[in-house]
Design a protein around this nucleic acid. Structure first.
Length: 637
DNA sequence: TACCCGGAAGCTCG
DNA sequence: ACGAGCTTCCGGGT
C-alpha cells in the first residue's frame, strides 16, 4: 500500500513523446507505483496521439502505432531499472521502449526518479526504491536529467547516429521536458530518412558529389562502433551536483553536439567569418536536410516554412548565436525576433501556426531596389542570386497590381523595399524575359556540372559491369547454384528478375539463403570476387540516377536556350550575355553528345546482361543489391 | 489554451 | 561607446 503523500520524498517525472509534463496526479488508491506510472504514461501517449493525428498525415513524425506494455514487476529487488514500460512502434519492427530508472542525484529533489528512453529490453539489476513515494508526476524543468541510451544492436534506430547525443556522459545528454521536443520523434525522423541519407541522392543532395558516406562497409562499421550505453549510470554519479558556472547552467537538451562554426557565415563586407544573423541561421536550418525534423519548407518556391520542433529550433538558435545569457531561448522569444523581420520585409507573416515566409532576398542584400533593378536591366549578375531571381519571378506583380502601380497615389519613395523593387522592375522593358534569361544563366553552370557528373557515374558503372571478370564470375556462380537447385529447368542466362530475387531466396530443403552459398563459394574458391569495393560505390550511385530524367532536363535546357536566343536580339546589345550564349550553345552541344554516349553505353551494358528493357535505376540497383548482400555475408568486403 | 502580435526596454557584441 | 540585432517581458487579440 502506498504511504501518505505528505511524507513523500520521491518524485516521478515522466517526460517524453513531446507531451507536456505538467500533470500532477495523486491517487491514494494506487496499488503500486508502476500502476501509477502506467496510467500516467497512457495519458501522455493518448495526448501524444491526439496531437499528431490531427496534423498533416504525411509528417515525418507520424507514428504508426503507439502501445504500452506493462511489466508488473515490483520494485522489491535491488534494481534501478524496470523492464520497458512504454513502447512506440513504427513500421512494425522499430521500437523504442522507456524503462524506468532510479537515480538519487539531484540538486532540486533529494531523490528523483529518472525516466530514460532506451531501445534495449534487457535491463540489469538495481537498488531498491525508498519506502515512500510521492506519486506526483510533474515537471521540474530545471532539474531533469535523462540520458538517451544508444542501442547496441543493429536496429533501425542505430542508423540515426548523427542525431543521437551519444550517451557517454550525463552532462552532454540533458533532457528537458519543458522543451517538449520529444526524442522519440527525433529518432523516428532519422529512422525514416536514414536510407536516403546514406546514399547519394542526385536530386536533393546539396553538394554535387557526396560519396563519402555511401560505402556500406563504413556504414556497417559505424553501427558496430556505436558506443553501447553504459548502464552503470550509478545513482552515485554526480552530474547534477557538480557546481557549474552560471553561463553553463543552461539545460541544453536533446540536440546532439553541433559544431557552431559550421553555422558561421562569411561577412560580405569584411570578408570575416562571423555568427549568422537570425535570418541567415534560418536559411541554413531550412536548407539542411538533417534538420528537417526541426523546421522545413512547406512551399520552398514561396519561401514558406514551418517549425516542427519549435523549442529545439530555439535551442539551436541559442547555441548558434552564442549570446552570453543565463536564460533559455524559447520559441516565444525566437518568434518575437522573427516578427521583427516583418517590418523590414525579410520575413512575412503567414496565417498558419509556426509558419513564416521569407521575403525577397534583397531585404538582406543591403542593396537598394534601384541598384537591383539596374543590375537586372544590364545583366549585372554580381548583385543577383539565384534565390532572388526565383523569388522575383514568383512574385512579379500581376496585371491588377501593375495597374495599381500605374495609378500610385503615394510617392514611390514611400513604398516598401520589396514593392519598390517590383515597381522598378516593371519599368524595365522585357523584364520577364530578362529575369528568365538571368535565371537560366545563373543555374546553367550548376546544371551542366550536375548532369555531366551524373552521366559520368553512369558511364563508370557501365564500364565496370561490362568489363569486370569478378562480376561475371559472380553471376556464373549464382547461375550454377540456381541450376543446381532447380535441375529441371536449366537456365542459360540469368534474367534481371532472377537476379533481383536472389538476395532473399532460400533453398527449399535447408532454407539456407542462396547468398550464403554464393558467399561461401566465393570465399573458398574465388576470393578475388570480393575485390569490387571501389566499383561498388559507382554502381550504388548510378542506381540513384535516372537517365530518362537527365534526358528531359537536357531537353528542357535546350528549349530554354532556344527561347532566350529569340529574346536576346530584343535586349540592347550586351556582350557578356552574348558571349555566355555562345558558350552555352557549345556546352549544350557537348552535353547532348555526352548523353548519347552514356545512353549507348548503358544500353550496351544492359543488353550484355539481359534482353530486358529496363531503367537505369533498376538495372544498377539490382547489381548494387547483389553486391550489398554479398557484403553482408562478408563484412570484410 | 496556445499561439500571434507588436510596444517597450534591456542586453550583447562587433 | 554606440547602435544593430536581437532578447526579455508583457498586455492584448484570436
Amino acid at each position: 500500500m502506498l504511504p501518505s503523500s505528505d511524507e513523500s520524498d520521491v518524485q516521478f517525472q515522466l517526460y517524453f513523446l513531446d507531451c507536456d509534463s505538467d500533470s500532477i496526479i495523486r491517487l491514494s488508491n494506487d496499488k503500486s507505483i508502476m500502476n501509477h506510472l502506467f496510467r500516467s504514461a497512457t495519458n501522455k501517449v493518448h495526448k501524444f496521439e491526439k496531437i499528431y493525428q490531427r496534423k498533416e498525415s504525411n509528417r515525418v513524425t507520424d507514428i504508426d502505432q503507439l502501445s504500452l506494455s506493462y511489466n508488473p514487476t515490483s520494485f522489491s529487488s535491488k534494481t534501478t531499472t524496470r523492464h520497458p514500460s512504454i513502447e512506440i512502434t513504427k513500421n512494425e519492427n522499430s521500437k523504442i521502449s522507456i524503462p524506468i530508472i532510479k537515480s538519487e542525484s539531484s540538486t532540486q529533489s533529494p531523490s528523483l526518479i529518472e525516466v530514460k528512453t532506451d531501445t534495449k529490453v534487457l535491463i540489469p539489476k538495481a537498488p531498491p526504491l525508498p519506502n515512500s513515494f510521492d506519486l506526483a508526476i510533474k515537471s521540474q524543468s530545471k532539474s531533469l536529467k535523462t540520458a538517451l541510451i544508444s542501442p547496441n544492436q543493429e536496429t533501425l534506430w542505430s542508423k540515426s547516429t548523427s542525431f543521437l547525443p551519444v550517451g557517454r556522459s550525463m552532462e552532454s545528454t540533458k533532457f528537458d521536458p519543458a522543451k517538449d521536443d520529444g526524442y522519440a520523434i527525433t529518432m523516428l525522423d532519422c529512422d525514416q530518412n536514414s536510407d536516403k541519407e546514406i546514399f547519394y541522392d542526385p536530386i536533393n543532395s546539396d553538394s554535387i558529389f557526396n560519396f563519402g558516406s555511401v560505402e556500406i562497409a563504413d556504414f556497417m562499421t559505424n553501427i558496430q562502433e556505436q558506443p553501447t550505453f553504459d548502464f552503470d549510470l550509478s545513482p552515485a554519479s554526480p552530474p547534477m551536483k557538480k557546481p557549474r558556472k552560471k553561463k553553463q547552467n543552461r539545460i541544453l537538451s536533446n540536440l546532439p553536439h553541433i559544431d557552431v562554426r559550421e553555422w558561421f557565415v562569411t561577412d560580405e563586407t569584411s570578408g570575416r567569418s562571423r555568427r549568422p544573423l537570425l535570418h541567415e541561421f534560418l536559411r541554413q536550418l531550412l536548407n539542411n536536410k538533417n534538420y528537417s525534423h526541426i523546421a522545413t519548407y512547406i512551399d520552398r518556391s514561396k519561401g514558406i516554412f514551418r517549425f516542427y520542433q519549435k523549442n529545439t529550433a530555439a535551442e539551436l538558435w541559442q547555441r548558434v548565436k552564442g549570446r552570453n545569457s543565463d536564460s533559455v531561448m524559447t520559441y516565444e522569444k525566437l518568434a518575437r525576433a522573427i516578427r521583427y523581420y516583418y517590418s523590414s520585409g525579410i520575413i512575412h507573416p503567414t496565417p498558419g501556426r509556426f509558419t513564416f515566409q521569407f521575403g525577397i532576398i534583397l531585404a538582406f542584400n543591403k542593396r537598394s531596389p534601384i541598384e537591383i533593378a539596374e543590375a537586372i536591366k544590364t545583366f549585372n549578375l554580381e548583385l543577383i542570386s539565384v534565390e532572388l531571381i526565383q523569388h522575383l519571378i514568383q512574385y512579379i506583380p500581376n496585371d491588377t497590381e501593375i495597374d495599381a502601380f500605374r495609378h500610385l497615389s503615394i510617392d514611390k519613395e514611400q513604398l516598401s523595399p520589396a514593392d519598390r523593387l517590383m515597381y522598378e522592375i516593371i519599368q524595365i522593358p522585357l523584364y520577364m524575359e530578362r529575369l528568365n534569361t538571368i535565371k537560366f544563366k545563373l543555374i546553367f553552370a550548376d546544371n551542366y556540372h550536375l548532369l555531366n557528373d551524373q552521366m559520368h557515374v553512369i558511364n563508370e558503372a557501365c564500364s565496370f559491369l561490362y568489363q569486370s571478370n569478378h562480376i561475371k564470375k559472380l553471376l556464373e556462380i549464382i547461375l550454377s547454384i540456381v541450376n543446381h537447385l532447380n535441375p529441371t529447368i536449366i537456365h542459360q542466362v540469368l534474367t534481371l528478375d532472377d537476379l533481383s530475387k536472389i538476395y532473399d531466396l532460400k533453398t527449399s530443403k535447408t532454407h539456407i539463403p542462396i547468398m550464403n552459398i554464393v558467399s561461401e563459394i566465393c570465399n573458398d574458391r574465388h576470393s578475388e570476387i570480393f575485390d569490387i569495393k571501389e566499383n561498388y560505390k559507382s554502381i550504388l550511385s548510378a542506381s540513384k540516377i535516372d537517365l530518362t530524367l537527365i534526358k528531359s532536363e537536357i531537353e528542357q535546357m535546350k528549349q530554354e536556350f532556344e527561347q532566350i536566343e529569340l529574346w536576346i536580339n530584343k535586349f540592347e546589345g550586351n556582350i557578356q550575355i552574348q558571349k555566355f550564349l555562345h558558350d552555352c550553345q557549345h556546352k549544350l552541344h557537348e552535353i547532348i553528345q555526352y548523353y548519347e554516349i552514356t545512353n549507348d553505353q548503358f544500353h550496351k551494358t544492359v543488353s550484355y546482361f539481359t534482353k530486358e528493357i529496363t531503367t537505369s535505376t533498376r538495372f544498377f540497383s539490382i547489381f548494387a543489391n547483389l553486391i550489398h548482400s554479398l557484403k553482408i555475408k562478408h563484412p570484410t568486403l
